[in-house]
Design a binder for these strands. Structure first.
Length: 426
RNA sequence: GGAGGAAUGGCAGAGUGGUUGAAUGCACCGGUCUUGAAAACCGACGUGUCGCAAGGCACCGGGGGUUCGAAUCCCUCUUCCUCCGCCA
């Protein structure tokens, strides 16, 4: 959620930025500022009434003590009048506050100046292209969903039996590969300074709202009405919310968190060839990294996160490129996002495996996440990124490394996997 | 699931209707003293909001109510603790 202060002080920058999202927000911004003016006015006049009431009440107390009951009763009548006025004023104020909040929730984050203009994924900027030749495959190379059968990696049919479509069941060496990747990612992240957390997979409404999943994306999350809880679409949600409402000392920063969780996404309406196999599923595993930083450091930290994620893909020896998302493709809450895509050799297409974003104060405003700074208490910046999402990594590993006698996995995984290559099942 | 108890500032812990935004202790910060440190002493020390400021207002788990006035009384929700039951 944007700050009204920002809308007032940096109106032109905000409007120009939102233009990159193809959003003409001039009217909305003006309305918000007007509502905020109204809010201040109402609050000030109401406070004046309350101040009078407080003074009179204290006088009444004194009068009673000295036995001057008649005078006290006269004042009581006056206070009762004030009470009526206060009740009316508070009712109005409440309405204005609600309108203000609703209006602010409609506005997405302001894109950073580096964000390219554009309306769709086509317009994303290739920030770092894959430097080499894209690998070519041997004849008869298979896409990962076929390899999954040959090698017994996962089964979507079994998932249908237990649950429904889009819930893969990893089996045998496939399940082991999954566990190997999770451990590898967590080890690398903790070595880079991130503290490991294993958070809850269900979150309450306040939590989902603070990181921006609510109110605009409720359709994306699985919801449990009996307990009013949501299954997390990403570990970002519980991890970032661990610090909701905190007021940190600058010395505690940056806070760096990592966590492995399954992620649940409804992905309503997504069907077809592009979602075959592991390309898009309702439940998948992901290791996430989160940072809470000083405002002036957040873009340096964003670069560091990008470099870190890149190093993981380097070690996995997967061909990848980095995109800087354009205004039209960027998430609602983000100010600047880098997407990592690995090359799926058998499908001949790029698959997104990580998204690294700086939210600046957009989340921390809802989180009420602040630090004690020299200029007073200020909102922190929040950032997060996948390091990494598993299914498409697995798809690319299978497809890119297939050889006549098996699938040779990158060296970093050998220890975790207990072997060098995956072998066909009988 | 059943029965009790509790929720106050960074922590501990007073406070049952009227200068209590909140005693006291600890921690933290500034200072005095000291070669330095410790101890001792002095001072400052919650958050938000409105205001140029002085200062006002709100906040004692959340929400609602009673009252001229609520941390203090009532209702409700949540969380935690103890005991019983159930259970990975």
């Amino acid at each position: 959620m944007l700050l009204v202060h920002t809308l007032r002080e940096e109106r032109e920058r905000v409007l120009a930025g939102l233009q990159k999202r193809h959003l003409d927000a001039a009217a909305a911004v003006d309305r918000i500022v007007a509502l905020d003016d109204q809010r201040k006015e109402l609050q000030t006049s109401n406070d004046t009434l309350l101040a009078e009431r407080n003074t009179l009440s204290s006088e009444i107390g004194t009068l009673f003590k000295s036995g001057r009951k008649d005078e006290a009763n006269a004042l009581r009548e006056r206070v009762n009048e004030i009470k009526g006025a206060v009740a009316g004023a508070e009712e109005t104020l409440k309405g204005v506050l609600q309108e203000l909040e609703d209006a602010l929730l409609q506005l997405p984050n302001v894109p950073h100046e580096l964000v390219p203009t554009g309306s769709s994924a086509e317009d994303n900027e290739v920030f770092k292209a894959y430097p080499g030749e894209l690998p070519t495959l041997v004849d008869g190379a298979q896409p990962h969903w076929e390899l999954a059968e040959t090698y017994g990696i996962f089964s979507l049919e079994l998932g249908v039996r237990t649950t429904g479509s889009g819930f893969p069941v990893f089996t045998g060496q496939g399940a082991r590969l999954q566990r190997a990747l999770v451990n590898y990612f967590l080890d690398r992240n903790t070595a880079a300074g991130y503290t490991e957390y294993a958070p809850p997979l269900l979150v309450n409404e306040d939590t989902a709202r603070a990181t921006g999943q609510l109110p605009d994306k409720e359709g994306q999350m699985y919801y449990i009405p009996e307990d009013d809880l949501y299954l997390i679409p990403t570990a970002e949600v519980p991890l970032t919310n661990l610090y909701r409402g905190e007021l940190l000392d600058a010395g505690q920063l940056p806070v760096q968190l990592t966590g492995y969780t399954p992620c649940f996404r409804r992905e309503a309406g997504s069907y077809g060839a592009h979602v075959r196999g592991l390309n898009r599923v309702h439940q998948f595993d992901k290791v996430e990294i989160v940072q809470l930083t000083l405002p002036e450091e957040s873009y340096t930290k964003l670069d560091e996160m990008v470099a870190h994620v890149g190093s993981l893909l380097d070690e996995l020896q997967l061909p990848y490129r980095i995109l800087r998302l354009c205004g039209g493709d960027m998430g609602f809450t983000s100010a600047l996002t880098y997407d990592f895509e690995v090359w799926s050799a058998a499908q001949q297409r790029w698959l997104e495996v990580s998204s690294v974003s700086n939210f600046e104060t957009f989340q921390s405003n809802r989180l009420k996440l602040r630090y004690r700074g020299e200029r007073g208490n200020e909102l922190l910046h929040t950032l997060n990124g996948s390091a990494l999402a598993l299914p498409r990594i697995i798809a690319a590993l299978l497809e890119n490394n297939q050889q006549p006698d098996g699938i040779l996995l990158p060296e970093v995984l050998h220890g975790y996997l207990g072997k060098e290559r995956l072998t066909p099942v009988a």
